[in-house]
Design a protein around this nucleic acid. Structure first.
Lengths: 221, 221
DNA sequence: GGCACCATCTTGGTATCCCAAATTGGTATC
DNA sequence: GATACCAATTTGGGATACCAAGATGGTGCC
């Protein structure tokens, strides 16, 4: 494989995994030496990550995008639009057996599952659910939105109760979808997204001071 | 301004203006000499245009994306989701006076207006309407979708009747939005998008042979 | 005459070099 | 001691040289 995609993948992983904090400055030369690649693939990676919203230009120079609470709220509205549309599409399909695959995905998490896995499955639920619609654009929209939310969700302090509640909501959405009850499924999904957003923004706003102390730039709403 | 953005802008213009036909092969070296730029800005431009869906990789090498009828249908569904969401948001705003600006935009077209201008305003209507929602993501989604549709709409044969009907629908949507009647506005917009899609796909499917004869790759639904 | 194989050329991918602008650090002056 | 100004280094953008892989065409063998 070309080294280009490798740089892109590794750099994205570092950003999403918060190994490089939100708001940190990036220099092409540092990335170059860090991954042993040359500047061309580094630039390609930065251009791609820019369109994903993970890095941005800071005048001249690059910056890892800060966590932006106003942006998180807007993304929630966007998610609601595209995820609900995708879900309604899925509910209208004749064969909805694919929801079982997602159900199984949820089941794969138990008390022994590491936090990373919970985090990943929590996002993949929404991404895979959107994929079932068969609409490539709705799917990509959801995937990109979840990518943008990923770091914030990782920073969020989630107690056990919130987590199991989210899982219950996921299951309820799947149940309605399986029955083809689009209105109910859409209602549940909307509620889930709005609730997630509220908890997320509240948590980050409360922790803002602590997060900044850890070097993470968090922009207020 | 850096030459990079110039190459990107000019190349995008050539693709959207069908000066380079859908399906045509592109070589970095040709672009390089055509615009008097070096390969670095050329590659940056191609990477950007790739994310916009205007060019794609063809194994090794680049190709101007063909017109894809299946994709057009999916985009219509996507548009419906994001545009309706944006419109509902706009309807819920206290101050909806900005719709008058869009109304004025429509008024700027009359019988003497060149076809290019009708085309541009027809797209800008949807883009600017989405911008009013104040949601950056919904706005970008609509803008990107319209960019992807742009070439197909340019190829579409539209008679006078269809054009004035579209304009009437635009005005009706604005009227409902001004009153804050979200449900009615959403209903009208949905109908408009679905109707546009049907006419567009039908027209292109009918003309497919002729378009291919002109060197334009058109992929069936 | 047709088909297979090899030389050559083309092309995108990578590395490196150069440049202009901006940031930075230090110094001299007030 | 603070500030303004200048030099040197850093940094991103652009250009170019090089490479490996794939396309192409021509030639020779069957």
């Amino acid at each position: 494989m070309s080294q280009m995609q490798s740089v892109e993948k590794q750099l994205r992983q570092m950003i999403l995994g918060l190994e490089i904090g939100p708001g940190e400055k990036l220099t092409e030369r540092w990335i170059e030496s860090r991954f042993g690649a040359s500047r061309t693939p580094v630039r390609a990676a930065l251009l791609r990550l820019e369109t994903e919203g993970l890095v941005g230009r800071d005048g001249r120079g690059w910056t890892v995008s800060p966590i932006n609470l106003a942006e998180l709220e807007q993304i929630a509205v966007y998610r609601e639009a595209v995820e609900v549309a995708a879900l309604r599409l899925t509910c209208s399909l004749a064969d909805r057996s694919a929801v079982d695959v997602i159900e199984a995905m949820l089941e794969s998490c138990d008390n022994d599952t590491p936090r990373e896995e919970w985090h990943r499955v929590g996002m993949d639920f929404h991404i895979e659910l959107a994929r079932l619609s068969g609409n490539e654009f709705l799917f990509r929209a959801v995937r990109d939105a979840m990518t943008r939310l990923s770091r914030a969700r990782w920073l969020e302090v989630r107690d056990e109760a919130a987590l199991s509640r989210a899982w219950a909501e996921h299951r309820a959405i799947l149940a309605s979808a399986r029955l083809g009850d689009a209105d109910e499924a859409a209602r549940l999904l909307s509620g889930h997204i709005v609730g997630s957003r509220d908890r997320l923004v509240t948590s980050l706003a409360n922790d803002r001071r602590g997060l900044r102390a850890r070097g993470f730039a968090v922009v207020a709403a």
